[in-house]
């Protein structure tokens, strides 16, 4: 039987493919691939690194218009994180204030409500706190710090917040005494965070740095709350009483959390 060239070619091609397919059933095909991989690996590494750096460059160029949006989102994230951070700091401060209050065992002495200052009006000697009628606050309740320093009393109550007039308000006055001395007087607000000690008889000797506390006769305030310390004393011959300037203990500039005494 004589084969034509065309049939020879077809048979050769068929056998060739049959051989190739058969190779896959033996480990030899794996050896061929392994050989090419091991030879090509260094070149592939170089190409891979080059491709990576070139594509990164072009990716950056193409995505440059998205940078503005990314920047905006990142700024938004920063603001959110700052807000979270601020909340955590507030909680930490509240926690510390509560610890201070518990350290002084105020909770045994008074029924307290923790409040936060949400606004300050130094010109009118008043502050706003974050709790009101819904938290059972009412007019006239006394406001103190965690260190038993008298701050003022609630003058207006709203649903969710209240206004506190500070001791230094001209509308405020209270019976006080000098600590460890049998000296009584009247502390009255002079405005602009100033406080005066009045109605102290001339014969009574008061000194600078003397500590002023609330008097036991005062019905509006619990006894023994810290008010301030004597700063300067003014004695006038024509007046029957001496007047002293009190430096209040409360520092409205740095205080953020306070306590309202619900009953005493």
């Amino acid at each position: 039987m004589k084969l034509t060239p065309k049939i020879k070619i077809i048979i050769t091609v068929f056998l060739f493919f049959l051989a190739l397919i058969t190779l896959n059933f033996f480990p030899f095909s794996k050896k061929i691939k392994t050989f090419f991989y091991s030879v090509s690996q260094p070149i592939q590494c170089v190409f891979n690194e080059a491709g990576d750096s070139v594509s990164s460059f072009w990716e950056m160029i193409f995505k440059i218009q998205l940078l503005g949006e990314d920047n905006r989102l990142l700024r938004l994230n920063i603001l959110n994180l700052l807000a979270d951070n601020s909340k955590l700091k507030d909680l930490e401060k509240e926690n510390q204030d509560l610890r201070d209050a518990l350290g002084l065992e105020m909770e045994k002495e008074f029924d307290l409500t923790l409040v936060k200052i949400i606004g300050k009006d130094i010109g009118q000697d008043s502050i706003m706190i974050n709790k009101g009628l819904e938290d059972n606050l009412s007019n006239g309740l006394v406001v103190i710090t965690g260190q038993k320093v008298l701050v003022g009393k609630i003058s207006e109550v709203y649903d969710h917040f209240s206004r506190v007039i500070l001791l230094s308000s001209k509308d405020n006055s209270l019976d006080v005494q000098i600590q460890n001395k049998d000296i009584d007087g009247l502390a009255r607000g002079d405005g602009s965070l100033n406080l005066l000690l009045d109605l102290v008889p001339k014969e009574k000797e008061i000194n600078e740095k003397d500590v002023v506390i609330t008097h036991y006769l005062s019905k509006k305030y619990p006894q023994g709350l810290l008010v301030g310390q004597i700063k300067t004393i003014k004695k006038q011959d024509a007046e029957p009483f001496q007047i002293a300037e009190i430096e209040p203990f409360f520092d409205i500039g740095t205080t953020e959390t306070l306590f309202v005494i619900n009953n005493f």
Partner: peptide
Amino acid sequence: FYLLSLLETSFFIHFR
């Protein structure tokens, strides 16, 4: 074709 295969599997793969 050897180089082209290498380029396609290692270099151009980053430019999909």
